[in-house]
Amino acid sequence: MITTFAKGLEKAGVKPNQVCVPSDILFEPAIVKHFGFDYFHTTRGRAIAFGTGLKLANPALKVVPFTGDLMTVGGNHFVHGSRRNMELTVICINNFVYRKIAGKAVSIETPKFSPYSTFEEPFNIPHLGNSCGAIYTARWTALHTEELADSIAEALNKKGLSIIEILAPGPDYYTSISNVNADLVRFYYDNSEIRNDEDPRNVGITPENKIIVGKFTSKERSTFIDSYNAQLGNVLGEKFTPYGIESGKKGAGGKNG
């Protein structure tokens, strides 16, 4: 998955050292060192909130929250981040174990605890994100490597909050990112159907149907920082120096050292 991510970075023309990954999923140090981005293991569900701070204090950063507990503990940050259109590329690792897909029951050994109780219906993440204002939504399984890399690249170059949902059961708050349950992903992959540009309303995952994957939405909307600069520029006029312009040199972080 990380290799795919790196491929996405490369395709987008983003250098790893501009990239900051706040995550509530445990990465392996070797991975981080190998790819060369900055990584923060945050408290559960707070990767987007943490990323909001990183981005606002240094707007030049490319902030890519990788999150697993996003839709449970971090649901609020997800909806509000989308609404604000904070410039973040959110990678949402969907940990939920779908007991049944396309009428077929999962026969593979599954993790004991998943983010929701087994009898609950999960969120339709692209739909929720889209309805809150996220500008880009896509869903892939971890095995759709090419498509995933393309989506990541595309999202990285969009201005605003993008959501890429990856069906990859396994890695969570306690176990590392490499810990994907390969059999289960294969099962999902085999039972998926690509439908780009599908209305996100229709991509909820249900026991009867195939998992719909694809790039669903891509739109333009003013980001938080742009809106901030426009509004304050209007009100304060000359007195106001736009925030975070000139590739972030004016950001709150100041110079290193």
Binding site: F224, L232, L236
Partner: peptide, 30 residues
Amino acid sequence: PTTPLTAYATTCPFGCVEPPFNIPYLADSS
């Protein structure tokens, strides 16, 4: 999070910069 864009409030003394929630849409999509 429901304050309309450009409306004033004490913690956005220069006008609201965040688009508000459309509550029915949020409820619907959840």
